[in-house]
């Protein structure tokens, strides 16, 4: 159960694949490009191309489609919500009407597309976090942000915060699970009543969780200091980035596919 929870938040799954081995900067830029691509398409052809790309990449990463799909679970509600909103609130030719509520064919299309977009977005983003260790991810972001250091952006601190946040997700999920069960055992009712009542019922879970988080943060800060951490200055890396020709080539392919899929779709529509 615990392990599944970790995966469902797109936690890093160590494996040996071309995608795992790629330079994190290449992967971050690619993910951004792919997500942009997803937002540029508007037609079945475009969407199906991106689904094909996703399937190809997840095969290549050895993560596999079933495991990928599991990572969408936490945002499933949001996706469903998006679909419903679009179905009911897009104007056009009504297919079905009852009072002020109507369903239009445009609405159905919009609903399907918007939720597909969201789904693809989450999946491409998760493909990045599933195949990139948090440390590498953070270092990659730091490296990409380093040009902005000149204008005062704390690139290193942002990256370190991300690493730690990702590192503590599994721990905190376990804690939440344990505290929730402990309060259930004390008779707490966490899933009955309206929204306000439910929020109130979560106080006995949230307060202990805050206490634990602060305690952990405090401990971690001391432990990091004891290990000579003093911010980004003077730090070196065990795994320095080596931008290989493969990374360059992959990035070129990604960008070409974004351009081609977008253009092709536009052309066909014309």
């Amino acid at each position: 159960m615990k392990f599944l929870d970790n995966m469902s938040f797109g936690q890093y799954v160590p494996a040996d694949s071309p995608i795992h081995r790629a330079d994190p900067r290449c992967k971050i830029v690619s993910a951004v490009a792919l997500i942009t691509g997803v937002f540029l398409v508007k037609e079945p052809l475009g969407f199906s191309s991106w689904i094909a790309v996703l399937i190809f990449l997840s095969r290549l990463s050895r993560i596999g489609i079933p495991m990928m799909l599991r990572t969408v679970r936490p945002v499933m509600l949001l996706i469903a919500f998006t679909a419903v909103i679009n179905v009911f609130f897009t104007s056009g030719t009504p297919l079905w009407e009852m009072g002020p509520v109507s369903i239009t064919s445009e609405g159905i299309r919009m609903g399907i597309y918007m939720s597909l977009r969201l789904l693809l977005l989450v999946l491409f983003a998760n493909l990045l976090t599933l195949t990139t260790s948090p440390m590498a991810l953070a270092d990659g972001i730091e490296s990409l942000l380093s040009p902005f250091k000149k204008i005062g952006m704390p690139a290193h601190d942002i990256a370190m915060m991300m690493t730690i946040a990702l590192r503590f997700i599994p721990t905190l999920l376990n804690e939440t699970d344990r505290i929730m069960k402990a309060q259930l055992a004390r008779g707490a009712d966490l899933d009955r009543g309206g929204l306000i009542r439910r929020l109130k019922a979560f106080i006995p879970v949230l307060i202990p969780l805050f206490v634990i988080v602060f305690q952990r943060a405090d401990d971690l800060a001391v432990a990091m200091e004891a290990r000579c951490y003093r911010g980004g200055g003077g730090r070196t890396r065990m795994k320095p980035f080596i931008w290989s020709w493969r990374d360059g080539l992959s990035l070129v392919f990604v960008i070409i596919s974004v351009v081609v899929i977008t253009l092709l779709e536009g052309r066909l529509k014309l």
Partner: peptide, 21 residues
């Protein structure tokens, strides 16, 4: 179920962490 949960009190590991009031 509720009555079972009352009859069988369960104290988790490090129960001091569940205090909130």
């Amino acid at each position: 179920l509720r009555e079972i949960r009352r009859k069988v009190g369960l104290v988790f590991q490090y129960p001091e962490q569940q205090l909130f009031a």
